[in-house]
Simulated assay, not measured.
Amino acid sequence: MTSLAQGIERIGEMRCGVGESPVWHAAEAALYWTDIPNRTLWRFDPATGRADHWAVPEMAGCMAMTADGGWLLAMETGLFRTARLVPGQPAPAATRVATVAHSHAGMRFNDGRCDRQGRFWAGTMVMDMSLAATDGKLYRFDARTGALDVIRDELITPNGLAFSPDGRTMYVSDSHPARQAVWAYDYDTGTGTPSNPRLFIDMNTYPGRPDGAAVDEEGCYWICGNDAGQVHRFTLDGRLDRSVAVPFAKPAMCAFGGAGLDTLYVTSIRTDDTDPLSGAVVALRPGVRGIAEPVLRD
């Protein structure tokens, strides 16, 4: 890890095209994430500084741990499962568990994660954001039944999925410049049903577009301010509590990790080939702890 200014450390030397979906694997004490356009999964061990990566057959927008030590990957054409990724060994085969029939050409999954009960949520988007196409959908996947259901449609770039510590509030953002909003929903933990949508944050009034997010143990919502080089923390009532500067313009997603879940890892999007930190992953200590990431429930 390389120390940067203001208590921020760079992890590894990799530069991702679009670094997304960081997930802290507590049993391995390692961070995993996906580089979407390069069709690559990454693993970093903070104790040793070792970085490993594996190729995947499609662009993986997000990933979630499974109870057997493997991974669920939301890719271009659907959801896939893979066995445990072992450093120094080839990636195991990915098995499709659900197929998506997109309504527009050039679509893929984007941001996603499991709810506190182990259901997987992920959104789809049209990759050409200049079209501002509202073909994006928010899906819920229940691995016990294999059901993949559309819960919300008419999204452009779904992002910012997160759940409150008690699981009773779900957050979703749309990071497209035409939207720049974060919504909160009441969430029925028994059925996995969101209701009562309301605007939680109008990001048009804050720096950056609302990209990937995480929730800390106090219930505050951390959202990457894409294009602004900041990560914002909002309180439960939608009030901006603080903003943390990161050393790249386009932070993509954040996740809590480390032994005490007191480290915030932030991935980024590579936009400047001359900037060695564009596309990098950094770690910082925000002064609060996060919550362990749920695994997929079978």
Rank of each mutant, 00 (worst) to 15 (best):
A83R: 08
A83S: 09
A83W: 02
R84Y: 14
L85K: 10
L85Y: 14
V86G: 11
V86N: 14
P87Y: 10
G88H: 06
G88D: 06
G88K: 05
Q89R: 13
Q89S: 05
P90H: 14
P90F: 09
P90G: 09
A91T: 06
A91C: 15
A91F: 05
P92L: 06
P92Y: 15
A93T: 11
A93G: 04
A94S: 13
A94P: 01
R96P: 04
R96H: 11
R96K: 12
V97G: 07
V97N: 07
V97D: 08
A98W: 10
A98H: 11
V100Y: 01
V100H: 09
A101C: 15
A101W: 06
A101S: 15
H102C: 15
H102F: 00
S103P: 00
S103F: 02
S103V: 01
H104I: 00
H104A: 07
H104Y: 09
G106Q: 11
G106K: 07
G106W: 12
G106L: 06
G106N: 15
M107K: 09
R108C: 12
R108H: 07
R108G: 11
F109T: 06
F109V: 01
F109W: 05
N110G: 08
N110K: 08
D111H: 03
D111N: 05
G112L: 02
G112H: 00
G112Y: 05
R113G: 03
R113K: 15
R113A: 06
C114I: 01
C114Q: 10
C114W: 03
C114L: 05
R116I: 12
Q117T: 07
Q117I: 00
Q117W: 11
Q117C: 01
G118R: 05
G118W: 10
G118S: 04
R119L: 00
F120V: 03
W121K: 09
A122C: 07
G123W: 05
T124D: 09
T124W: 07
M125F: 02
M125K: 05
V126C: 10
M127F: 08
D128S: 13
D128K: 12
D128L: 09
D128M: 14
M129V: 01
M129K: 14
L131F: 14
A133T: 15
D135F: 13
D135M: 08
D135C: 13
D135E: 15
G136C: 08
G136F: 07
G136L: 06
G136S: 02
K137V: 09
K137C: 08
L138N: 05
Y139W: 15
Y139M: 02
Y139D: 03
R140D: 13
R140H: 02
R140I: 05
F141G: 10
F141S: 11
F141V: 05
F141D: 12
D142M: 07
D142G: 06
R144S: 13
R144K: 13
G146R: 03
G146Q: 04
G146Y: 06
A147V: 00
A147S: 04
L148Y: 00
L148K: 01
L148D: 01
D149T: 04
V150N: 07
V150W: 03
V150D: 10
V150C: 08
I151Y: 01
R152E: 11
R152H: 02
R152L: 01
D153Q: 14
E154D: 15
E154G: 05
E154A: 10
E154R: 14
L155M: 09
I156L: 05
I156K: 10
I156E: 08
I156A: 11
I156P: 02
I156D: 10
